[in-house]
């Protein structure tokens, strides 16, 4: 019974969400990868707000088959309580008529089993896709590493034509995904060939000083966070800023 109800709910939310996305047509930025999704999401949200764009991001555990539609519709989860789902079911279609639907959706997409990404991409079609990292994390749901990588490969393939794929050049599995794509691909990382290249990071008392080279510009920035992953966050943020400034299509 519980399984049947869950399936019904899942399909109902999917249909409503697709209709809502069709009506409001927000720009979708999808973030996937084994690590660092949330920090990247928060950075992009901050940048979009600096540009005065209305933005909605999904909370960290709202990135799967039911969580993602709920996040897009801005509805809470009823978790295991049936009565809590009733208002959610009722309110979902009303989102079709929402007056100020956000211009941008920044969504992390979670994949822990084969086919998860396919399902999520049957709901959203990203304008920009970012793949942060691929590690052994979540590998237990897949028979081998290639199948896990295929989930991310699918995200890149399903990114809108004319869209942008942003990849970590330091992770060879992620880097490979950029090959033979119709979409524009930009790389970030410490590697020489990166479009947004982190030249140097220097830890100090307050955080880190990062030297970043992007589109011929060299920037030195002090950030107040520690760890290599935050230099990646900074690099992705720079790519997004440039895109917002230079690419009218994504605005």
């Amino acid at each position: 019974m519980r399984v049947i109800l869950k399936t019904l709910l899942k399909n109902y939310l999917k249909i409503i969400t697709k209709m809502v996305l069709f009506v409001h047509r927000p720009t979708v930025i999808a973030i996937a990868g084994s690590t660092n999704k949330n920090f990247v999401k928060q950075e992009i949200k901050k940048i979009l707000r600096e540009f005065n764009f209305s933005t909605r991001v999904n909370p960290k555990n709202f990135n799967t088959e039911i969580g993602l539609p709920l996040a897009i519709l801005y509805l809470p989860s009823g978790y295991n309580e049936y009565q809590k789902w009733l208002p959610v079911i009722f309110k979902a279609p009303l989102k079709l008529f929402q007056k100020k639907f956000p211009k941008f959706l920044v969504l992390s997409l979670g994949t822990s089993d084969e086919g998860d990404m396919k399902y999520l991409l049957s709901i959203v079609k990203p304008d920009i896709s970012i793949i942060t990292d691929i590690t052994q994390r979540y590998k237990e749901g897949f028979s081998d590493m290639n199948r896990l990588v295929n989930e991310y490969e699918l995200l890149a393939q399903k990114t809108k034509k004319g869209g942008l794929i942003i990849l970590n050049s330091d992770n060879y599995r992620v880097k490979e995904i950029g090959k033979n794509k119709e979409q524009r691909v930009l790389y970030y990382g410490f590697k020489e060939e990166s479009d947004a290249r982190i030249e140097k990071t220097e830890k100090n008392e307050k955080g880190q000083k990062i030297i970043l080279r992007h589109q011929g510009e060299k920037r030195e920035e002090q950030i107040y966070r520690f760890g290599k992953h935050h230099s990646y966050v900074l690099a992705i943020g720079h790519i997004i800023k440039k895109e917002l400034k230079n690419n009218a299509e994504i605005r």
Binding site: K60, T135, R225, K228
Partner: peptide, 24 residues
């Protein structure tokens, strides 16, 4: 677990404590 440590870093940041989940 890396995923737990990453969550811990996020949780600490909410309390204005900034630490690197990978090393700290």
């Amino acid at each position: 677990l890396p995923e737990l440590r990453e969550l811990i870093e996020e949780s600490l940041a909410k309390d204005k404590m900034y630490y690197d989940w990978e090393k700290e």
